Amino acid sequence: MEIPVYTLDAFTNLPFKGNPAAVCPLQHELNEELYQKISSEMNLSETAFIIKLNPSDDFTTGSRFRLRWFTPTTEVNLCGHATLATARVLFQYENNINSKLVFETRSGELCVTRYGDNCIMDFPLNPASPADPQEFRGVIKAAVGNLPVQEVYLSSKTKKLLIRLADSCEKSALRNLKVDPIALQRSESTGKVKGVIVTMIGSPHEQPEYDFYSRYFAPWFGIPEDPVTGSAHTVLGSYWAEKLGKQKLLAYQCSSRGGELELEVRDDGRINISGTTVTIMRGKIII
């Protein structure tokens, strides 16, 4: 059996930046073990599998597909950068004729619209609520050490803990943060937290004028640090839209690879996340 595979860097227009995702268009479902084995072999934060819903479907003319995402260790409910990469594969390499695609996923139907070289993803918004820093003091210590913390929020639905650094912090404090993934994972074993977002407000004196910065760590899913994370911005978008009083936001995830996301928080409880991709590899998996 041969399976086409593409590797794209998402949320960037530069190779070897952004967040790499593998994308595999499938003619039919695989067995569960094989999904995980392929994803472990690819060893990226996510591998996406596009599956035809009906045998008569065509990747060029079809507008609706099933989409699944796997980390090297498990299947996940939502992944932004691999969804972006999947849409770009369909538009760019399968020459899909539709301007909008619909993916059936574990997070419901997700729509992606082509907009030039960019894609706009229609995602659920995942608001977070204020959390007691004392309850999560071990996680906070493992994530940011002795850096001053302004607020802590928890998205119970996504199990993402948002730690906002004090506004007195320089961007370099976030960019230079060293997080031990083993210590972070050991700091939380109740199951309440499966990912940690560290964020801070943007600087009006820098260009581009980003509204906020972030980094994201998810060792509980086998991801020590995710370079650019669409799903984390379903939490971040809600938080910063309220704090800054604006619905359109420009975000930068300042991992070592780095990536830019355009956000629009909508009144219907959803969020538009926009970005572009760069293709790094095309090939076949031979089994």
Score class of each variant (00 low, 15 high):
G191L: 12
N146P: 00
R66W: 03
I120Y: 06
E188L: 07
L154K: 02
I38M: 04
R164K: 14
L184R: 07
E170A: 14
P15G: 13
Q150D: 12
E209G: 04
R164M: 08
R175W: 09
F103W: 07
P127G: 05
I140D: 01
F65P: 03
N126Y: 14
G191W: 12
K243M: 04
G116T: 11
N98D: 02
G62M: 02
L147F: 09
S39I: 08
Y210P: 01
A48H: 05
V23P: 02
A251I: 08
G18V: 13
D117E: 13
S45F: 13
P224T: 13
C24R: 11
P130V: 13
A232M: 09
A241K: 03
T158E: 04
L236K: 06
I163H: 06
T86N: 00
V89N: 02
G202E: 02
H233E: 10
V198I: 15
D268G: 02
K52I: 08
M200R: 10
Q253Y: 09
A10L: 06
G18R: 05
D268V: 10
S99P: 01
G138C: 05
N176Y: 10
G269L: 07
G258K: 05
E262M: 06
P72S: 01
M42Q: 14
F123K: 02
E32F: 06
F59M: 03
S45T: 15
S156L: 10
R137N: 14
K159N: 08
L67E: 02
V152F: 03
G108L: 08
S187T: 08
V76T: 03
R137S: 14
G138K: 11
E104Y: 11
V112N: 01
S189V: 14
L147Q: 09
V265T: 08
N176C: 10
K160T: 10
T277L: 02
L244F: 06
N176W: 04
Y153P: 00
F49L: 05
D267E: 14
F70I: 07
P130Q: 04
G283I: 12
N146K: 15
T276P: 00
S255Q: 06
S63Y: 06
V149E: 02
S203C: 11
I51W: 05
R270M: 05
